[in-house]
Design a protein around this nucleic acid. Structure first.
Length: 241
DNA sequence: GCGACAG
DNA sequence: ATCTTGTCGC
């Protein structure tokens, strides 16, 4: 358990739309700004990851504004440990709408990332990157706003279908294709366990993204940086912050 | 109209 | 995403 773990004062983000129509318009405009290029995965030393957690059961879940908690960590690949961990709490003003997740989570997620004092080489987001109906998932959004290499790693599919048959052994891969375009990669991170879906967020290409994710794997299905961010987000919420 | 649908 | 204990299996 290395690294610190402290709350961070909230700060104003950018201006975020509250209507689905406005959000979709923004996605159409931003999608063309995503840059796909190779990333030198072998030289990556620090990987940042963000995840969110929300309180309450179905009763208060879809009530807005809602309380949310975003956690961000920086993971050192060489030492295989978290070197910094932060979190922020705040209000979420958008409901969860498939395809518009970034507008619900980005404001708080960005606040958390802004609190990090450690620099990092690439950002991992819990969700899709280009494997999105408008090629503008949360990983693309975060990567564009911060102008950092970003990768989306989702536990489920939003659009597209796995090409062919994905092997059951760890390390097996299969393309994720949507409307004739390979938008992501299904990767079996543990033998006999459901795969994760990796896609380009920003300033990386699919091959680099897949390689980076595999470099961050520990003994679990979810890449270690993301798994750690998820643990922080969940524990801080249950601790009643 | 019906089914799908990241977190 | 969240509510939850034990339990079956490699």
């Amino acid at each position: 358990m290395a690294g610190k773990q402290s709350p961070c004062p909230n700060d104003p983000g950018g201006d975020w739309p509250s209507s689905p129509a406005a959000a979709i318009e923004i996605q159409r405009r931003l999608a063309g700004q995503v840059r796909i290029e190779p990333l030198d995965v072998d030289s990556v030393e620090r990987v940042a990851a963000v995840d969110m957690s929300f309180p309450g059961g179905r009763a208060v879940m879809h009530r807005l504004p809602a309380a949310g908690l975003a956690a961000a960590v920086v993971y050192d690949l060489r030492r295989s440990e978290v070197i910094e961990s932060v979190f922020v709490t705040g209000e979420v003003h958008m409901p969860y709408i498939p395809g518009l997740l970034s507008f619900r989570e980005c404001p708080l997620a960005l606040e958390a990332l802004h609190c990090l004092r450690t620099t990092y080489d690439v950002l991992l987001a819990d969700g899709q990157g280009r494997a999105h109906p408008r090629r503008m998932g949360i990983a693309c959004h975060l990567g564009l706003v911060l102008d950092v290499p970003a990768i989306g790693c989702a536990k489920g599919i939003l659009v597209g279908e796995v090409q062919g048959k994905l092997g059951s052994r760890r390390g097996s891969r299969a393309g994720l294709v949507d409307r004739g375009e390979t938008v992501g990669m299904a990767i079996r991170t543990r033998s006999g366990v459901k795969p994760v879906y990796v896609s380009v967020g920003h300033r990386v290409d699919l091959a680099s993204a897949a390689a980076l994710v595999e470099r961050t794997l520990g003994r679990y299905r979810i890449p270690e940086p993301l798994r750690q961010a998820h643990i922080v987000a969940t524990q801080m919420r249950r601790r009643g912050v």
